[in-house]
Design a protein around this nucleic acid. Structure first.
Length: 214
DNA sequence: GTCCGGATAG
DNA sequence: CTATCTGGAC
């Protein structure tokens, strides 16, 4: 995967707060939509913890319309911002420096933050080594032959963290590469197995070839 | 399981 | 036109 894509330099974002905003906004939506929303927020001057805390919810909503579930996501952003302002006096770094297990529990207790978003924040904003898995990871590694399709988030995460030494840079790159394979080649209905850079180690390739040729 | 609900490739 | 997009709450 690395030989094909090269270093992908994730996660896009000029500040830790911006990375967190991206992690929430990208739930079930293409990154290009998130990118628009973030530029809208930046132009409006509310891409900081303090500014977003003061902004009316309607103000946040209108800038993030491109991210599909904009009404819900505005609530999610507000819930996160309120938590940091109310419990950490707006000191985001103090929050992110917490022990990663404790940080994860606290993130999961917030409205709108589930396992993948929590882990994305821990890895990409707090820069602590947790392996982020997602729907692409499930699909790809199921097709490769590692998992049942019904494998849980935690089971997948434990598998990767058992076999790959904890390293922020490596975990960062690995998840980025999985997403790259997922949205370029390993789609649900019509995967492009013939051009996929990991086809030589994939079992699904053969089945897909048979189906296409009848 | 359903709801949320905009942008884009093919 | 519809399938899909770096999910989570209920």
């Amino acid at each position: 995967m690395f030989a094909y894509f090269g270093p992908r330099n994730w996660w896009p974002g000029e500040t830790r707060f911006e990375i967190i905003v991206g992690a929430i906004l990208t739930q079930s939506v293409a990154w290009r939509n998130v990118s628009k929303a973030i530029e809208n927020l930046r132009a409006a001057g509310i891409l900081t913890l303090e500014a977003m805390y003061k902004a009316p919810i309607e103000e946040i909503e209108k800038h993030i319309v491109p991210t599909l579930y904009w009404r819900m996501k505005a609530k999610k952003l507000r819930a996160f911002v309120n938590h940091i302002m109310d419990n950490y006096h707006g000191d985001l770094d103090k929050f992110l420096q917490k022990d990663k297990e404790e940080l994860r529990r606290e993130l999961l207790s917030l409205y709108g933050i589930g396992p993948e978003t929590a882990d994305s924040i821990i890895l990409y904003a707090a820069e602590q080594p947790v392996f982020v898995v997602d729907a692409y990871t499930r699909r790809i590694f199921h097709r490769l032959g590692f998992f049942e399709e019904s494998v849980s988030y935690d089971e997948m995460q434990q598998f990767f963290m058992k076999h790959i030494p904890p390293d922020v840079r490596y975990y960062n790159e690995y998840h980025a590469l999985i997403v790259g394979i997922g949205n370029r080649f390993c789609s649900n209905k019509k995967p492009d197995c013939g051009n996929c850079p990991i086809q030589s180690v994939c079992r699904f390739k053969l089945r897909n070839k048979v189906e296409n040729e009848g």
